[in-house]
Design a protein around this nucleic acid. Structure first.
Lengths: 227, 227
DNA sequence: TCAAAAGTGTTGTCGCTACACCCATGT
DNA sequence: ACATGGGTGTAGCGACAACACTTTTGA
């Protein structure tokens, strides 16, 4: 295969969110090249000339995590002339939602260190990456109210308590257990899977799954989901 | 001044919205070069290497309309490899909201024809511009529910009926007059200007103005505006 | 039997919707 | 006087928030 050409003033950066140990976390890399050697940064890279824009973050994500077909959302494009010190680079920011259980840590060709960090503990990053990260988090928090993307952070089968925990982690609010369950069940976007938890040392919870058909039908009728 | 360098695989396109004759319209150009000669298209252009990203749509808008400091919102970035026939071009879409009364039609260097067209009558456009336009319109319709950007479409002083008309044009819904007025006045985001309409052949309406200070205070208290 | 989390209803309040008539002004 | 849009209040209903105890299960 011929060498592919990168568009060298045009990049993508990814904020990879995952839900783990009751917290919303994101995946960062530790830079091993100048500039900003040793600083944390968002995983990113340049877009190939013959590659669709959305294919670039997909490719980067696959390289880093081994995951395919994960949920990706475009956040925005950042293009101040001085945002990258070496030359003019415009970047498109995406966020991904992954099920941490499915994830298998990889180390790419460049032997990057990877770190999952809770979203309220992210360090000072390279370049303008803190700004990019905040934009992604804000976008996620807005989306979550009107769209059921949060299911991308959960395994296929989940309890209502787990669902509530994810919502609480993302929105940074607490919800009342009874009201939360009423709202979710009334919306019909989840359905009983018939399964229950196993290997828990207390009463096993019922497991539900996301009902995408019911959700789409709801949207077509002009209703919106909201938590 | 030295010739400025364009990044020739990176452009911006603008959807310029205005409110006129009770309708939401947008400004289109008729292409006078190949490819797609004679087709309607969104006004756009390439980004200069030494120009901040947001400066590019501002510049284009000034060239076309003579307006500065107008409201601009980034919608998204489109980058399929085949979206532009001549070569790989990634484009960032913005929309602008203008007061049509302030607008003075200009014809640029390239003697482009400009047309204001109601948003439900837009023709088949060049390239993927219909898709870009739909993305902008959808974004505007979503924003309008949570943010008072719609005031950018109105003159400084406006009646509540005019405000209602704009909301109806943008959201494509009808509102009840009494309920609408209650909601707007309760929100405190408009205040009485003391003025009234003149040159109308019926009872003159009170004129209001947008109260940005009250709006910001409202946001800080964690409330959201919604129509 | 204890610990730990699952699961479950009711009441009050507030906000939204639906709805029709009189008022002021210019011609 | 008439035509045109400006301006106003209420009642019913549905959605949401607040709130605490019993049940199941495994250790």
């Amino acid at each position: 295969m011929a060498e592919r050409i990168e568009i060298d003033n045009f990049s993508i950066d990814c904020v990879i969110f995952g839900f783990d140990e009751g917290k919303l976390k994101a995946l960062f890399i530790k830079r091993n090249t100048e500039p900003d050697f040793g600083r944390m940064a968002l995983p990113g890279g340049f877009v190939y000339l013959d590659e669709d824009l959305e294919a670039a973050p997909m490719r980067r994500l696959y390289d880093l995590t081994g995951l395919k077909n994960i949920f990706l959302q475009q956040v925005g494009t950042f293009g101040k002339t001085d945002r990258y010190p070496l030359r003019r680079v415009i970047t498109v920011v995406y966020y991904a939602l992954v099920r941490v259980a499915d994830y298998s840590m990889r180390v790419g060709d460049d032997a990057l260190e990877l770190h999952w960090i809770p979203v309220n503990e992210v360090p000072q990053m390279a370049f303008d990456h803190n700004e990019l990260f905040e934009a992604a988090l804000t976008n996620l928090q807005e989306q979550v109210h009107t769209t059921p993307i949060i299911f991308n952070l959960l395994p296929k089968f989940f309890s209502l308590s787990e669902l509530q925990e994810v919502y609480e982690a993302v929105t940074m609010q607490k919800f009342d257990k009874r009201n939360f369950r009423k709202k979710i069940l009334k919306s019909t976007i989840v359905k009983d899977s018939g399964k229950v938890q196993s290997n828990v040392d207390h009463r096993a919870a019922k497991l539900y799954k996301f009902d995408i058909a019911a959700y789409n039908k709801m949207l077509r009728k002009g209703l919106f989901f909201s938590v």
